[in-house]
Write a protein that binds this DNA or RNA. Structure first.
Length: 606
RNA sequence: GGGGGCGUAGCUCAAUUGGUUAGAGUGCCGGCCUGUCACGCCGGAGGUUGCGGGUUCAAGUCCCGUCGCCCUCGCCA
């Protein structure tokens, strides 16, 4: 390399005027005007205009004419202040230009399949295949610069708080998160497999038992589950664990982290402490355990009002212990056409509801097929309770409270996005806590876990009572047992921002007796538990401190910071919907010799 | 595995609801231009309409199959 870079293209300002500089980068555009050639040269900090004048150095001008987009060059020259008329106000470097006196061409480039411009959005398949071109776009460069800042800010913060960054293994035993594992075959032990960690959960707990006291790690987690807009088979977590603490202590640390990161990365002040909401309130009022607080439209429970109204469907639903819930969409009468409502209803049925009911509030009254059954007195109460006005639309689901809330919660989010009801500016962080420890699966008639098996119940006594009863009844669910199980609250807490679940943590079980009781409740025999987590149970015997922690999803945090709804935008080399790496073509078949070494024979596809 | 959307020039999209030779913008190639900066002007090349089959006098358009990408349910922090 003949020309050594002295400054970044995007860094040049009027203050550099007169200096001799060397810049390197990719050719963004070429503009040839008679005997002048202008080239915008781009690096990660921005672009600057290079000038080649035929009358000054004819040979250079000739060379410059032959350049093309995305060629990689170095250029040496004098920084010249542009005249008043020539300033480009759209560019940070627009007050100056480099009058080139020497040029080095590092590489030519074929015309790229996509243009390197922020205002050209190509399809995701081509963007992922030619990711290195896509990533040159200023928008993408910015995202990953911010991602770096986020990680740096987090490290600075934890360091200042006395945390140690400690790496845990990637080749491990399966972890208890419940998702499908990625397996890595062992050469030394044919037939045995490592699992890539779904999280460093067990290892960080053992680090606490090892006396490290405050741990964090920016860790990659792997889950072999189908992709979604906010999921990748591998994602990054800021993983945290502390000894001798309770949930409130962890939350305080994380609130400090959020405030620090938001300030350092976004220049945003976050007011502390963050608000809390119970799981029960979140699901009842927002129909989801990660409420987006950037807009209102809470769900309303009308069960009390309609339980004795004349509309049989509503009244009977309430009498059978279920609920009638409603969502008020302001201006919904105009916004939701008859056809759209039919689609909604079909969707609701797909989610398990019997149907949807509605009341449209018009200028002269109501438009609703159920109004005549409900009766005027009850209609008035509904209007009062929901605060409906002319032009609004009320949508009802009558079903299990949970299902009704779920469906209306989904519509709340859908309407919020579709009708621009969401306040785009700002970040609404909150904690959701008091999650149930268990759920009841009606179909299987089973008590099922809501979390991984190391989450400490909030009310240990209630848990142990349930565990005893459960064991005595030979681990069969019956109404009494179900009630006992559902009464157990977990120490689980989630941190939410703008409807995105950023992180999740809990107090950990550290008493062997409680841990064993938990395995019992999850239908895991002592042998099974030992086979899977024996090393953790063994470690618990030798002195485990009280501990709690959390894992914060870096990718999702990035999505929230940018208001991006696709995780692929914030991951440099993401996998596509069926987990293929489109650029490298992974996964790919293994060599026969490799398989043989691993003791693996492939089964014929049927 | 189920459901939905999309697939037309390198890229982003049109194409009268089945009707002439599939268009536009941008990019690309060539030419002109000494203050452009999304430069401008002139000219040009570029198409197996994802692929395969079918219906029809006629298919980008309708039908069947298949492949690919995105979303979603199941699954999963």
């Amino acid at each position: 390399m003949r020309l050594k870079r002295s400054i970044m293209c995007g860094a040049l300002r009027a203050s550099h005027t007169g200096q001799e500089v060397t810049v390197c980068g990719w050719v963004q555009t070429i503009r040839e005007i008679g005997g002048l050639v202008f080239i915008d040269l781009r690096d990660r900090e921005g672009t600057v205009q290079l000038v080649f004048d035929k009358e000054v150095i004819p040979k250079l001008h000739e060379q410059a004419k032959r350049l093309a987009r995305e060629w990689v060059i170095g250029a040496r020259g004098k920084v010249s202040k542009r005249s008043e008329r020539q300033v480009n106000k759209n560019l940070p470097t627009g007050e100056v230009e480099v009058i080139v006196s020497d040029l080095e061409i590092h590489n030519s480039a074929e015309t790229p399949p996509i243009e390197v411009r922020d205002d050209v959005e190509a399809n995701s398949d081509i963007r992922l295949t030619y990711r290195y071109v896509d990533l040159r776009r200023p928008k993408m460069q910015h995202i990953f610069q911010v991602r770096h800042k986020l990680a740096k800010a987090a490290r600075d913060y934890f360091d200042a708080q006395g945390f140690l960054e400690i790496e845990t293994p990637l080749l491990t035993k399966p972890t208890p998160e419940g998702a499908r594992d990625f397996l890595v075959p062992s050469r030394h032990y044919p037939g045995s497999f490592y699992a890539l960690p779904q999280s460093p959960q067990i290892f960080k707990q053992i680090l606490m038992m090892s006396g490290f006291d405050k741990y964090f790690q920016i860790a990659r987690n792997f889950r072999d589950e189908d992709k979604r807009a906010d999921r990748q088979p591998e994602h990054t977590q800021i993983d945290v664990e502390l000894s001798f603490v309770e949930p409130a202590d962890v939350q305080k640390v994380i609130e400090g982290l959020i405030a620090h990161v938001m300030k350092a990365v976004m220049g945003v002040e976050v007011k502390l402490p963050l608000p809390h909401m119970s799981y029960a309130e979140a699901t009842a009022s927002y129909g989801i355990d990660r409420p987006d607080l950037r807009f209102g439209m809470q769900l309303v429970d009308l069960s009390e009002i309609v339980k004795d109204c004349g509309f049989g469907v509503f009244a009977d639903t309430v009498k059978s212990g279920k609920a009638v819930k409603a969502l008020l969409l302001p201006g919904g009468h105009e916004k939701i056409s008859k056809g759209q409502f039919k689609n909604l209803e079909a969707d609701a049925k797909g989610r398990g509801a019997k149907g949807l009911a509605f009341i449209r509030y018009t200028a002269d009254g109501v438009d609703s097929p159920i109004a005549k059954f409900i009766g005027e007195a009850h209609m008035a109460k509904i209007k009062e309770k929901t605060g409906a006005n002319a032009g609004d639309m009320l949508i009802f689901v009558a079903d299990h409270a949970r299902l009704a809330s779920q469906i209306l919660g989904a519509y709340r989010n859908q309407f919020g996005a579709e009708f621009g009801l969401i306040q785009k500016e700002g970040f609404r962080y909150l904690w959701v806590d008091d999650f149930p420890q268990f759920a009841y699966d009606e179909e299987k008639n089973e008590i099922v876990p809501e979390h991984h098996p190391f989450v400490m119940p909030k009310n240990e006594d209630a848990f142990m009572a349930f565990a005893e009863e459960f064991k005595r009844n030979d681990r069969k669910a019956n109404p009494r047992i179900v009630d006992l199980a559902l009464a157990v609250t977990a120490t689980q807490y989630d941190i939410i921002v703008n409807g995105i679940e950023l992180g999740s943590g809990s107090q950990r079980i550290v008493k062997p007796s409680v841990q064993n009781a938990m395995f019992d409740c999850l239908g895991m025999t002592r042998e099974q538990a030992n086979a899977k987590f024996g090393f953790l149970l063994e470690a618990l015997k030798y002195g485990a401190p009280p501990m709690a922690g959390i894992g914060m999803g870096v990718d999702r945090w990035m999505m929230a910071l940018f208001g991006i709804d696709n995780i692929q935008e914030v991951v440099v080399f993401p996998k596509h919907a069926n987990a293929r790496g489109m650029m490298d073509g992974s996964p790919s078949p293994a060599e026969e010799a490799q398989l043989k070494e691993l003791g693996i024979a492939l089964r014929e596809e049927k």
